[in-house]
C-alpha cells in the first residue's frame, strides 16, 4: 500500500520479479496507473526482470506451431469476411460469391426484356437467390451456435475447477468455520466463512442488504497481528441464489476474525467503511 506516496524504491524489484503478494501488487499498480514517475520506474524494472526469462534453457517450438498460427489467422480472416457480407464486399466467402453470381444473373434476366429466355431464367435465378440467402443465414446460425457451445464448454471447465477448489478447502485438515453476525443497522445480515490458513484460501457466503450505487462489500481477514487483509469484494447475492465466493490470502496467516465492510466500488487496501458482518474465529 502506498497511501498516495510514491512506490518505495525497495519494492520495485520485488514487484517486477513477481515476488509481492497480490494484495500489495494491486495497491502499487493502482498507484503507478496514476503516477507517471512510478510508472516509468516500474516499466524499467519490469524490463530488467523480463530478462530473467533468458536464464531458461533455450528451445525452439515445433514448426507446426507457426503453421497452425497462420492457419488460425487465415481462418479468422475468412470468418470476418463472411460476416461482413452483404454490407461490404465479400471477396472470399463461398456463399457470398455464389450469392453475387446468382444475384447478377437474376438482375440481368429481369432487366433483359426482349429475350424470352429471360422469362424462364428470371424465376429460376430468383429461386436460387433465395436459396443462397437461406444457406448463408444458416451458415451464420451454425457458426454462432458453435461459438456458443465453445463458450459453454469453457464455462463448464471453469466451474469444475472451482468446485475442485471448494472441495479442496473443505477437505483441508486445518479449515475453520466462522459464522458472521449482522452489526447494528444490518441485524438481519448473516455470513459464513471457511478458512484454511495452510492453503491461504477463504470461501464465504453472505446474505446482505442491497448496496447503494458505487459501493461494494469487502471481506477482511483480521490477523492475530498486523492490519486486516482483503479477502475480496463481492456483491449481494440475487434472490434465490446461494453464491459462494473464494479468495486467496497469504498462506499461514493466523486469523482472529473476519469482517465485512461497505467500501467504494473496486475495494480499498484497508477498511474504511461501516462493518456489516463480524465473526470471531473460535467464537
Amino acid at each position: 500500500m502506498t497511501n498516495g506516496r510514491h512506490i518505495p524504491e525497495e519494492d520495485l524489484p520485488l514487484l517486477a520479479a513477481g515476488a509481492l503478494p497480490e494484495e500489495e501488487c494491486a495497491a502499487l499498480r493502482a498507484h503507478a496507473a496514476g503516477c507517471a514517475e512510478c510508472a516509468a520506474k516500474l516499466a524499467e524494472e519490469r524490463g530488467r526482470a523480463a530478462l530473467l526469462a533468458l536464464a531458461a534453457t533455450q528451445e525452439k517450438p515445433a514448426p507446426t506451431i507457426k503453421a497452425e498460427l497462420f492457419a488460425r489467422i487465415r481462418a479468422e480472416g475468412e470468418k470476418e469476411e463472411r460476416y461482413r457480407w452483404p454490407a461490404q464486399a465479400d471477396k472470399g466467402g463461398e456463399s457470398g460469391r455464389a450469392l453475387r453470381q446468382v444475384s447478377g444473373q437474376a438482375g440481368r434476366a429481369l432487366a433483359g426484356g426482349t429475350n424470352w429466355w429471360n422469362w424462364v431464367l428470371a424465376p429460376l435465378a430468383a429461386a436460387l437467390l433465395i436459396a443462397a440467402v437461406v444457406q448463408w443465414r444458416e451458415g451464420r446460425r451454425l457458426e454462432a451456435e458453435l461459438d456458443g457451445a465453445n463458450q459453454h464448454l469453457a464455462e463448464m471447465v471453469k466451474e469444475r475447477q472451482r468446485t475442485e477448489m471448494l472441495l479442496d478447502v473443505l477437505a483441508a485438515q486445518d479449515t475453520v468455520s466462522v459464522k458472521m453476525a449482522g452489526m447494528p443497522g444490518a441485524e438481519k445480515a448473516t455470513g459464513a466463512v471457511q478458512y484454511s490458513a495452510r492453503k491461504g484460501m477463504v470461501m464465504y457466503t453472505a446474505v446482505l442488504p442491497p448496496l447503494p450505487a458505487n459501493k461494494t462489500y469487502q471481506l477482511w481477514l483480521v490477523p492475530t497481528t498486523g492490519t486486516p487483509i482483503s479477502a475480496g469484494i463481492f456483491a449481494p447475492e440475487e434472490r434465490g441464489t446461494k453464491k459462494i465466493w473464494m479468495a486467496e490470502v497469504p498462506v499461514n496467516t493466523e486469523a482472529k476474525a473476519f469482517a465485512v465492510t461497505v467500501e467504494p466500488a473496486g475495494g480499498v487496501p484497508q477498511p474504511t467503511g461501516a462493518k456489516v458482518l463480524v465473526g470471531a474465529v473460535g467464537g
Binding site: 497480490e22 494491486a26 499498480r29 503507478a32 516499466a43 524499467e44 524490463g47 530478462l51 475447477q161 486467496e248
Partner: peptide, 19 residues
C-alpha cells in the same frame, strides 16, 4: 496457478527494455 485460483488480472503494460 489456475488450480489454486490465482487468475488475477495481470498488468502487462509498460515494459521498458533498455537492451
Amino acid at each position: 496457478r489456475r488450480n489454486t485460483g490465482k487468475t488475477e488480472d495481470l498488468d502487462e503494460n509498460g515494459v521498458s527494455l533498455r537492451v
